[in-house]
Amino acid sequence: MSTTEQQRPVLGWLVSDTMAVAKRHVLKITRIPESLFFALIQPVMFVLLFAFVFGGAINLGSDGGPQAYREFLIPGIFAQTVMFAVASITVGITDDANRGIMDRFRSLPMHPGAVLGGHTLASLIESSLVIVMLSITGLAVGWRIRGGLTDAVLAYLLLLLFAYALSWVGAWIGLHMPSPEVAGTAGLAWIFPLTFASSVFTPIATMPSWLQGFAQWNPVSCLALATRELFGNPIPFPGESFPEQHPVALSFGYGFLLLAIFAPLAVRAFKTRNSGGKA
């Protein structure tokens, strides 16, 4: 029974509904090119700031020097960038919920996972563009892929996995925020300590010892280190700890774990959110 006209298995609907929602968000990116522009420009600014302003003051040990720092930096910025990708989806989700469009989605006989599935997919497309932009910037300041092709592909896949998993974290946060303004702050607040207390900009060995344990296990450090390893970029002060020995495996583990936890949590929050809130 239904007035819908086509019969398809549930998974088929999940895919087609997700694509429909993703199309909405991709169209939106084209309608507000400014937002994509600033998403693209932000990592470029970080590269320039750290490569030319802070870079000289950061100690990479014996094999240091500006060129080495840049090769160390770019994989770190890759990791930082996929973290920041979370913020925009957090705001978008809260905005949708407050506008009532999410109520409309929820009152449609569509797959419950598709609204977030489509939004996160569009976010992944945006992240891919940012990663391409960052690769070009990196090449321009002297960063090179020095490892093998398979490893390089693996590095990009790992970055995309993280971007995707984190967009689900962002969606989950967004569904719990009262307004887009709060979501804007909340989406970023936890990312700053995670990205800075990591090996993104500075080697962990230069941090105070009480911070090193956190920084070693920090998923952002793992991702940065894994990316350096896969791209064949310099790894100063190689550590002995488990995460520093197995960054690639651990990063994939973190990525899948985040996805496995936050995708179901976000879908559940989507189904139960009382976004109207008014009696």
Partner: peptide, 26 residues
């Protein structure tokens, strides 16, 4: 609902087509 539940950045036609697709029309 009380708020116009449509996407601001899409056109009228795009909005209706989106909801049509999500209603599982071809």
């Amino acid at each position: 609902g009380q708020y116009a539940a449509v996407d601001e950045y899409l056109t009228g036609r795009e909005n209706l087509e989106l909801f049509g697709r999500l209603f599982h029309l071809s």
